[in-house]
């Protein structure tokens, strides 16, 4: 089983967020709680349903990740881009996603 984290988009501003160990939704994937066994994944799923129902987040999903050199890295490109933002420079004051992190 791949390791997993819980992600969604925050209700008020839609920003991508991940669930951390304290049960808060964080903007930083690297602070996310990683579930490494089936019971932990089930718990993430339940928290996801609960916080969706509580109107804290939407588009809630449990996604596959791997820990590489101590860094959490989603397996799907889509989720890596969600974590890092657009992969090109798109606006003043905002950096492009780290190409090494995005690369397959």
């Amino acid at each position: 089983m791949a390791d997993k984290v819980l992600t969604g988009n925050r209700l008020g501003d839609g920003i991508a967020v991940w669930l951390d160990a304290a049960g808060n939704w964080t903007e930083n994937l690297q602070d996310a709680l990683v579930a490494r066994h089936a019971e932990a994944v089930q718990s993430l799923e339940e928290i996801g349903k609960r916080d969706f129902a509580a109107n804290l987040v939407l588009d809630v999903n449990v996604i596959d990740v791997a820990e590489v050199n101590g860094k959490i890295r989603p397996l799907r490109l889509r989720e890596r881009i969600r974590a890092e933002g657009p992969t090109m420079v798109y606006a003043d004051g905002y950096k492009a996603a780290d190409p090494d992190f995005i690369a397959a």
Binding site: D13, G14, I15, A16, N55, L58, D59, I81, G85
Partner: peptide, 25 residues
């Protein structure tokens, strides 16, 4: 935002006003 409307009920209303949810926002 107050939680009175759930996403399932709100989604068609926001879409009628041009508001989508994308990857980042």
């Amino acid at each position: 935002l107050s939680g009175e409307l759930a996403e399932d009920a709100f989604r068609p209303l926001r879409l009628m006003n041009g508001v989508y949810l994308q990857l980042h926002a």
